[in-house]
């Protein structure tokens, strides 16, 4: 029970921190409004999917260094398939790319299970492979995205019965994010499979002895990670309208947000909500620093320092809790 409280307490604290940051943003820039919030949600979208991809694997007791490369590969695949194609063709591209992410993720998991090489090394190797594949698909940023896909994340959702002033605060990007994550995460969390993922993360041997199919669960965890990464790749293409073969800074950001969100690196603890709130916090900090007209390079230092400080603080708290 105390463990449950502590975990929820961490997420609640993060949410409170997010609200406080939001108020600070409003103080710094009184004009900060719904439009800016919409662009924050759009900027967060690929990061949030990268974080979700990392979270599943970390809960299962592993780590996935190939997240950013996977996003790059799925993004260029989508962009090059949609270039010059009709709008309807994109209806086929989206499921294809998602399936591709799922399968490549499963391959990651199978390699780990079959070769018995540590997950860090396997995903490091697949990082190179996926990066190379992305370069083969498109050697320079290019391609295109269907108009309806781009429209899917821009603007707001008109909900009947709500006044415009509230409506303006619900950007489509945020809704897309919530829907995509919930469709997968909520059924997973309630299923036997979800429990198995937590079980192999917290104690692999104990899980094995209580009849959890450890290998299969691990493969599925990586496959889900690949699926989330593919969503991230699609989000990149939707946001920019093109695909870029060079992976963005999503790997570092995903690991940082996972830890910030209260998911223990080692597995078995935490949920998806914490890391997602954490990624919003990290992006909003960046917005605030930009609004304060701070040199973007100094921003990188502050971001890094916040990350290190928070992680140290979190480790310190758990150490106290254990004693």
């Amino acid at each position: 029970m105390s463990h449950f409280l502590r975990r929820q307490g961490w997420v609640a604290g993060l949410l409170a921190f997010f609200v406080a940051l939001f108020i600070i943003t409003k103080l710094i820039q009184p004009a900060y409004g719904s439009g800016d919030f919409g662009s924050l949600a759009r900027a967060v979208l690929p990061y949030a999917f990268a974080v979700a991809a990392q979270t599943v694997v970390v809960i299962a007791g592993g780590i996935d260094l190939s997240v950013a490369a996977m996003m790059a590969l799925t993004s260029v695949t989508a962009a090059s398939m949609m270039a010059g194609a009709s709008e309807e063709y994109a209806l086929f591209v989206v499921p294809f790319v998602l399936a591709m992410g799922f399968v490549l993720g499963a391959v990651n998991g199978m390699l780990i299970v079959v070769t018995r090489v540590p997950d860090i090394v396997v995903t490091l190797a697949t990082l190179f492979v996926l990066q190379g594949a992305a370069l083969l698909v498109l050697d320079a940023p290019g391609g295109a995205a269907a108009e309806w896909l781009k429209a899917l994340i821009s603007g707001t959702v008109p909900i009947p019965g709500l006044p415009d002033s509230i409506d303006a605060w619900i950007p489509k990007a945020l809704l897309v994010l919530i829907v995509c994550l919930c469709i997968i995460w909520i059924p997973l969390r309630r299923s036997r499979l979800g429990l198995s993922i937590y079980a192999i993360g917290s104690n692999e041997l104990a899980a094995f002895r209580s009849g959890v199919p450890v290998k299969r669960t691990r493969i599925i965890a990586y496959a889900l990670s690949g699926l989330f990464a593919a969503m991230g790749g699609l989000a990149l293409t939707m946001g920019t309208g093109i695909g870029a073969p060079i992976p963005g800074p999503y790997l570092l950001a995903s690991v940082a947000a996972v830890v910030l969100g209260g998911v223990a690196l080692g597995g078995g603890k935490g949920g998806l909500l914490g890391p997602i709130v954490a990624v919003f916090v990290l992006r909003l900090v960046r917005t605030d620093l930009t609004l304060l007209a701070i040199d973007p390079n100094v921003t990188a230092i502050i971001e890094g320092a916040i990350m290190v400080a928070v992680v140290m603080f979190g480790a310190f708290i758990t150490m106290r809790g254990r004693q």
Binding site: V129, G132, A133, V137
Partner: peptide
């Protein structure tokens, strides 16, 4: 090509 080189390196 650069891409194939990276794939081989990783493999």
């Amino acid at each position: 090509p650069e891409g194939a080189r990276r794939i081989l390196f990783g493999l």
